[in-house]
Simulated scan of single mutants.
Amino acid sequence: MRIALPPALSAQAIAGRDATLPVVTLDGETMGTTWRILFARAASVDVAALRGAVDVRLAGLVAEMSHWDGTSLLTRFNRAPAGTWMTLPPDFAHVMAAALRIAAASDGAFDPAVGRLVDLWGFGPPGPAPTPDRAAIAGATALSGWRRLSFDPASRRLRQPGGLALDLSGIAKGHAVDALAQLLRDAGIGHALVEIGGELVGFGVRPDGDPWWVDLEVPPGMHLPPLRVALHGLAVATSGNYRRGCHNLDPRTGYPTEAAIVSVSVLHDNAMEADAWATALTVSGPAAGIVMADRLGIAARIVCDAGGEVQEHLSAALTAMLAD
């Protein structure tokens, strides 16, 4: 069993644990998938009120950034006339700023403005579609692209250049995980694990003193030595062509990726960036993806199918986390 550990387990977090506290589980559905929270419950925590707060928080994020909800703020932006400036609420603005920063750093391998292409290929709300022809792909690509967006972080204003469609499915779920983790902290909970659709963040430790242990996903039908991660102040996200809702389009070409990558898992200090970088590395391909991860210090595992042979590539940052 390979073990990946964070740079340091917080002595304060370990000292602050209470071995007598029960671990409570809450779960539900959101964003077309499931959510789950495990936390060490102190007597002061009202579980019913916490559950209600989680539901409200998730509903608010869906109302802002869902591309499946025809009434969401995102879909209203997508329908807005050219030249329209829209003031975004704080969550949306936070995600948008991160999305544009990661788009630039990844040279467009991650792109929040790929909605037209996603729909054209049949991966979006309109549903399955026939394989588009070159002219249709060229037309959708011309309307897409993060460089067409103008965003003022200070005023939280985003400009619709005309015909552009946002799709934040590669980053919004990660932000939702982070948002729930912060909600728990604000409620006085110091030890918890939060998961939405396989993307996780953990903080503190279990009442018995162990970290929140999570095994990196192994794609179905593949055999890899297990890699277990201590999610203490860490998040993990996985992008893979076997996962529900995964659409690995290369925004730079307008076509699905042809690389042999089956899955990419990224460890980061927040789930939002882990989510987006997992997508960016998947689109980049195994060789360019591992080079990008090493250049940027990203802890990543890339799993490939090379002619029926399973290959695993670990970035330098992830290798450095492995326990001796």
Rank of each mutant, 00 (worst) to 15 (best):
I3T: 12
P6H: 03
L9I: 15
I14Y: 13
A15G: 10
D18S: 04
A19W: 12
L21W: 10
V23P: 07
V23Y: 07
V24T: 14
M31L: 11
T33Q: 00
T34I: 07
W35K: 05
L38Y: 14
F39P: 06
G52Y: 08
V54F: 08
V56C: 09
E64V: 00
H67K: 14
T71F: 12
L73A: 08
T75M: 09
R79A: 15
R79T: 10
P81M: 03
A82M: 09
T84Y: 08
F92T: 00
V95Y: 06
A99G: 10
A99S: 14
L100T: 05
D107L: 14
G108A: 03
A113G: 07
V114K: 07
R116W: 07
D119R: 02
G122Q: 06
P125W: 12
A129C: 09
P132N: 00
A135L: 09
A138H: 06
A142H: 12
G145P: 07
W146N: 08
L149N: 06
R156L: 05
R157K: 13
L158I: 01
R159G: 11
Q160T: 02
G162N: 03
L164F: 07
L164P: 01
L164T: 06
L166Q: 04
G170W: 00
I171N: 10
A172I: 03
K173D: 02
G174Q: 04
H175S: 11
L180E: 03
L183H: 05
L184C: 01
D186P: 12
D186I: 13
G188D: 02
H191S: 10
G197I: 00
G198R: 02
G198V: 04
L200W: 10
V201T: 15
V201F: 15
G202D: 00
P207E: 09
P207Y: 06
P211A: 03
H223K: 13
L224R: 14
P225S: 10
R228N: 07
V229S: 03
A230I: 06
A230D: 06
L231Y: 06
A237W: 04
G240L: 03
N241V: 13
N241S: 11
N241D: 14
Y242V: 10
Y242W: 09
R243Y: 11
R243K: 12
R244C: 10
H247S: 07
H247I: 06
L249T: 00
G254K: 07
T257R: 13
E258A: 14
A260I: 12
V262T: 13
H268F: 13
H268W: 12
D269A: 14
D269H: 15
M272A: 11
D275A: 03
A278L: 01
A280Y: 11
A288H: 06
G289D: 02
V291E: 15
L296E: 14
L296G: 10
A300D: 05
G308L: 01
G308N: 03
E312C: 11
L314H: 03
L318Y: 01
L318D: 02
L322R: 05
A323I: 10
